[in-house]
Amino acid sequence: MSHNLSHNQDDTLIRMVNQIATNLSGASDEAQVVQGICKHLESFWARSMKQRLVACLDRDDAELSPLAQRAVVELAGRYRNGAQDSAQ
């Protein structure tokens, strides 16, 4: 049986950030939640993953949850491709 789970990188990253948003959404203040998601991504995700996630903002079909979307928009300033190059 071949494995049938999706491993499209974009989908994986979107699923991950949505999961983070859901788990961090316990704080009462939404701005605080968005900050928390942002900080989590900054602290734990590789540069290439953040750049890729930010690039998903340009896709119409990216199913980011509302809080995740806000956090990724905040990240975009720093991680849109070219804003912080990965050294090649």
């Binding site: 491993h7 990188q9 994986t12 602290s43 734990f44 995700w45 590789a46 540069r47 290439s48 993953m49 912080q84 050294a87």
Partner: peptide
């Protein structure tokens, strides 16, 4: 030293399959 985190094991696997 790089000031950004690197890839975790499952991220490495995903990136390997994708070819990066």
């Amino acid at each position: 030293l790089d000031d950004e985190p690197g890839l975790r094991i499952p991220n490495m696997f995903d990136a390997a399959i994708e070819g990066t």
